[in-house]
Write a protein that binds this DNA or RNA. Structure first.
Lengths: 355, 355
DNA sequence: TTGAAAGCGCTAACAG
DNA sequence: CTGTTAGCGCTTTCAA
């Protein structure tokens, strides 16, 4: 036993807990035996008497295993990382919850990294995996490139990417899977619905054109128009920034058009934009949906409370999170070891009263 | 060097990365030197030449430190745990984001545990700290008792508790702090405002009476009534379950009262309830706020979009998260080591059009 | 059925 | 200024 223990460490250290060695000593067995009893897989068997004795000691002295030591030895942290732009964006709480619910069934913990779409933070989060903080990654990034993931792939760290296939192309033999809602089809569904209601002048307000999300939605919007024999009018396409205020501004813009060119319906690429657009229309004295129909995208929690309740598209983010975690866990546990898979999530058009 | 490496392990192991030993060997220095260069605190100094050489090797072979090994040795995981009921509940994304933003400045990662208020999951999350997975805890729990935290306190694991002081009493000399929004004062502010608008028959619809949250809000409500010389009418107090549907049901109940007893204003203990109540009033053909005023609590993201926009109370969850993380980090870094502190968060009454 | 022994990769006394 | 040494607590061969 050492002399005085060096309690004067600057960084706080937790008071030391009992270890397997302590249990072993008290129970009069080897430390190995304790480990076996705790993990109990190996072919090795332990007599019932010994097992009982050890278990009793564990209980008595309140031994709990040290996860860090276990991780160092076993090379698994039992933790996964979720890289997202912002948990405050209504899509993500559901998505992350979906991940966590599945992770929990496999005894995995989840570290969430919020990046705000900043490259340095995205890289930093990916690094956590390289440095062995997490065993695998589920990621929704804006700025990362294929090259950025080189080291991660080289280390064979399993990843699940949330996003359209061409967002972040990766070699198919890398240990990664992809999960996405085809934004193209989603936008197609909403716009198609608007056309079926008889609208011919359908505008769209989209977020950033630098995001695959936005681009995909515009593509789906155009495809729906074409299918309904409507010529796309570029004057009816507006780029905002996914915010309510940009929805408001873009809508006002649209309303300033000569009445013959003014839209009778608007497909907003997310619910926030839709709400901004609704407010602009109301401010202009327009009735929704009589004077102008408005549809959104996302089905955020309060979409049904807006007046009139918003017609929108539900991407089922929680189920997407479930799927992502399931795919990742299959690789983590070794249940799957093949090449890249792609999970295309289902969505639902939610028809309410705004369109 | 060993013979063939045992690559046939069942659990997937990431391909092995270079270690400090590799760097040292190639650079021709001791492993210790590499560690010093990387951490560079100690009084020890390294010549610039050596440092450059080592750094070059690190860069060249792509060495990254193994966080698990570092944690085992240093006894710090650089991770904190956030125990919350449900990230899907609108208060928590902001709260957690507030934690993460501060944690990040100190290079801490955050593991979020969703418990749904289930005791077993709450205990499980607390255990993560005991088992050395996280260095400290920020927790919002329903079921935990003082006794449950005994081992955690014995291990001197720093904690920050979100909740009113008598929610989960702990010895003041334990390394914990408390952060809360005085729900009592919040409810008092909202109810007081209603009274100042001239209302005398003010009802309240609250969530579970088993939660300190609910009880506190009722206390504040009563206090405000008293201060305004209004006798509390128990018939105007309804217990729901924090959900929109319970708001709807309770409001219908209230509307069924004989007209002389019917409330002219309602304080809903959260925004979801408020919205449910609004829907019930509208369904009954009542105008808000002319026929009946409704105020909520929380200022959820879309509260201003409801028609009419909801008067409510903002608890500034993100700032509360900031404060919680700040308190915890001070203890984790050793900057603070005194007895329990309490941070009382500020709130703001947000007056819109529903009351 | 059990135990001895060898590290996982790193940090931090301590000695030169 | 640099290196030696000793583990952190655990898992997992391998031998008894």
């Amino acid at each position: 036993m050492g002399e005085g223990d060096s309690a004067e460490q600057r960084p706080r250290r937790r008071s030391s807990r009992p270890t397997q060695a302590d249990v072993a000593r008290i129970a009069g067995v080897s430390q190995t035996a304790v480990s076996y009893i705790l993990n109990g897989k190996l072919q090795t068997t332990i007599s019932d008497a010994t097992r009982q004795r050890v278990l009793a000691v564990i209980d008595e002295i309140g031994y709990v295993p040290d996860l860090t030591a276990r991780s160092l030895r076993s090379r698994r942290t039992m933790t996964i990382g979720a890289i997202i732009p912002d948990i405050t964006n209504p899509f993500f709480p559901e998505f992350v919850r979906g991940i966590q619910d599945v992770a929990q069934t496999g005894s995995y913990d989840v570290i969430t990294y919020n990046t705000d779409g900043q490259r340095s933070l995205e890289l930093n989060a990916v690094d956590a995996a390289r440095r062995g903080r997490v065993d695998g990654l589920i990621m929704s990034t804006y700025q990362l490139t294929t090259a950025d993931l080189g080291p991660t792939i080289a280390q064979a760290i399993p990843m699940v990417i949330l996003g359209e296939p061409d967002d972040l192309p990766l070699p198919a033999d890398a240990p990664f899977d992809r999960v996405y809602v085809p934004g193209d089809d989603g936008a197609h569904a909403v716009t198609g619905y608007l056309a079926e209601q008889g609208h011919r002048r359908i505008a769209t307000i989209v977020g950033s054109q630098h995001l695959a999300n936005g681009v995909q939605r515009v593509a789906g919007y155009r495809r729906a128009l074409t299918e309904h024999g409507i010529a796309a009018d570029e004057g009816l396409l507006r780029w905002g920034d996914w915010s309510e205020s940009s929805g408001y501004a873009c809508m006002n813009d649209l309303l300033a058009l000569p009445s013959a060119q003014r839209p009778t319906a608007v497909f907003a690429a997310n619910d926030l934009i839709a709400v901004g657009a609704m407010l602009a229309c109301k401010a202009a004295g327009l009735k929704i949906p009589e004077d102008i129909a408005i549809a959104g995208y996302d089905n955020v929690a309060l979409a049904h409370l807006v007046m009139p309740p918003l017609t929108t598209l539900d991407q089922h983010p929680r189920q997407i999170g479930n799927a992502a975690a399931r795919l990742l866990l299959e690789r983590l546990t070794g249940d799957f070891d093949g090449s890249s898979r792609t999970y295309r999530a289902a969505f639902d058009l939610v028809i309410r009263e705004s369109a």
